[in-house]
Design a binder for these strands. Structure first.
Lengths: 138, 138
DNA sequence: GTTCCTGCAAAAGCTTTGCAGAAGA
DNA sequence: TCTTCTGCAAAGCTTTTGCAGGAAC
């Protein structure tokens, strides 16, 4: 994914979001760090570069992005929310042992129930959990 | 699903859970009320019958059931956890308008990624959201 | 008598809100 | 100048924890 400042500005403006410095950096961070970070992680990684950054701004900004469908919230971790740039359908696997979250691809066309045939479906989330290969080897 | 007291006792004993009155009633409630209730809902519905019931006990009991794989936590609601008796794979749809959660069936065999081939998968959760038919009609 | 279940109160942790000051156009 | 973005502090909520009393066998 391209993550240049100018490209990100366009994306934000396209959603009527003013491309402030903080917002651009948070978006860029998510685009470049696809490990489904928590608010805490984003904050800790950006605070060196933006010393005045507050967690409130991280929360506000992420909520703004989520409302505009630029970013998705993952509720795969029962404690903290995790954030991911919106992309095509992929599932998330969370290792119960190390906590790491892995992406995997699936064909979402097979995922539809007769029961939902008259429903308007906005989002499909697929969360697995178990033990990852690295932890199994230990 | 059978929900007689004796049957529930067997299920609990099978998992080495002492079948106390509270535990039996909470399990029975989940078996008979498959609307994915929150802790609050379970507590409010049982407090009339068990006046001394505390939310702590509801939390403790549900955590016990989840640990024994008798009950599943749904993180489909971003605010509160919802609980469902463990059954075969089915997905959950949450209406963004009315909040109602609907079950739907899917074939979980289509849901597997090459990326996870050496992983041990314990649970597969499928959460959709959007607008349900009832709300679309309004 | 011993185990452990139960429940009150307090604590913990994530997220939101109120509001004032700062930044930007 | 006027809008709105930002950040501190406090509040809100769900869930967990500590601990003492009580039930069950």
């Amino acid at each position: 994914m391209e993550a240049s400042v100018n490209y990100i500005k366009e994306i934000l403006l396209d959603k009527d979001i003013k491309p402030s410095h903080h917002r651009i950096r948070i978006f860029q961070f998510l685009a470049l760090n696809r490990y489904h970070p928590t608010v805490e992680m984003i904050y800790n990684d950006l605070i060196d570069e933006i010393p005045t950054l507050s967690k409130t701004t991280v929360y506000n900004t992420l909520n703004l992005f989520v409302a505009s469908n630029l970013v998705r919230v993952l509720n795969i971790d029962e404690v903290e929310a995790r954030y991911d740039i919106t992309t095509d359908n992929h599932g998330h696997f969370r290792c119960k042992s190390c906590g790491e979250i892995y992406d995997f691809e699936f064909d979402s066309n097979y995922l539809s129930g007769e029961e939902l045939k008259n429903f308007q479906i906005h989002e499909k989330n697929v969360y697995f959990n178990g033990i990852c290969f690295s932890c199994l080897k230990i």
